[in-house]
Amino acid sequence: MARKQVPEILQRQIVARSRLLRIEAVDLKFSNGVERQFERMQSSGRGAVMIVPFIDDEQIMLVREYAAGLHNYQLGFPKGLIDPGETPEEAALRELKEEIGYGARELIPLKSVTMAPQFFSATMHIFIARDLYPEKLEGDEPEPLEQVPWQLHKAEALLAQEDFTEARSIAALLMTLRKLQK
């Protein structure tokens, strides 16, 4: 299949800004001559990480934390932004120590994913972490995260949990299960 030509950017302008977000209006011209304006959230360019930590061969660790967008507590995997100068692997190891109090001797990359790429330019790198050892770093969470161990053979029950809804956590779980089947 032939690659499509990306539209020409005619103009870019920041139309809204907050402490965390920047919204950019982008005027585009498509190869067929049609012009449109899109709005997109600008990312920091650093990306983020999510980790599926294995406590042992049968048990993974999740965290329950406050989700401001939904104004409730959500269950998911440890995750966070990549700090300036960090590699995704370094960020994954740091986030594990901050969120669940463990380091990992082995990180297995699963996949880098995007969320709503029509509107966001952010990438999340998903890893499996194995051979964990206790090591804690101070995190930036406003309250301690609840650690929730989960038996992997109960993955269907996890998918049915009312507070396990984040698409990236669901994708990470399903990719992990698929990788284990190989």
Rank of each mutant, 00 (worst) to 15 (best):
A68R: 13
L62A: 03
D140G: 13
I100G: 00
K154R: 15
P88T: 01
L81V: 10
G45I: 02
M124I: 14
F77D: 01
V63K: 00
F77R: 00
L132G: 07
W150V: 04
P53Y: 04
V49I: 12
M61W: 08
L93K: 15
V6S: 09
F120A: 06
A116F: 14
Y102A: 02
L158E: 07
S44V: 00
E95M: 04
P88Q: 03
E90T: 14
M175W: 14
R94E: 05
Q151D: 12
L70Y: 08
L180N: 10
Q161R: 15
V15T: 15
L177Q: 13
R105N: 15
A122Q: 13
A167P: 03
L81R: 11
L70T: 09
P117Q: 09
L107D: 05
G139F: 06
M1C: 10
V34G: 00
E166G: 07
T114P: 01
M175K: 10
Q11V: 04
R40A: 01
D131V: 04
R64A: 10
E58T: 13
N32H: 13
Y133C: 08
G33L: 05
V6F: 10
H71A: 08
G76K: 09
L20C: 06
G139S: 09
R36M: 14
T176N: 06
L152W: 09
V26R: 01
L180A: 12
M1T: 11
R178K: 15
P78W: 00
F164W: 07
I82G: 00
A48Y: 11
D140S: 12
V49G: 09
S112F: 05
G101L: 04
E162G: 15
V6A: 09
P88A: 01
R40T: 02
M115Y: 15
A16P: 05
V6C: 05
R130P: 03
L62M: 13
G80Q: 00
D56R: 03
I14W: 02
G103I: 07
R36W: 10
D131M: 10
T165E: 08
A104P: 06
I9W: 05
R3N: 07
S43G: 15
P78Q: 02
E138G: 01
A171Y: 11
L110V: 06
Q13W: 03
I126K: 06
G85M: 03
R94L: 06
L152P: 11
L70P: 01
V148D: 02
I108E: 12
Q37N: 08
F164T: 08
A104I: 10
D163R: 11
P117F: 13
K154I: 03
L159D: 11
P84R: 04
H71I: 00
Y102I: 02
Q147H: 09
K29T: 06
I170Q: 13
I128C: 04
R19W: 08
P142D: 12
R36F: 06
R22N: 08
E95K: 09
I55C: 04
A122D: 15
Y102K: 01
A155F: 13
E141C: 01
E146T: 14
A160R: 14
L180E: 13
E90K: 13
F38M: 11
E99A: 04
E89F: 08
A2P: 14
L28I: 08
L174I: 10
G85H: 06
Q151W: 09
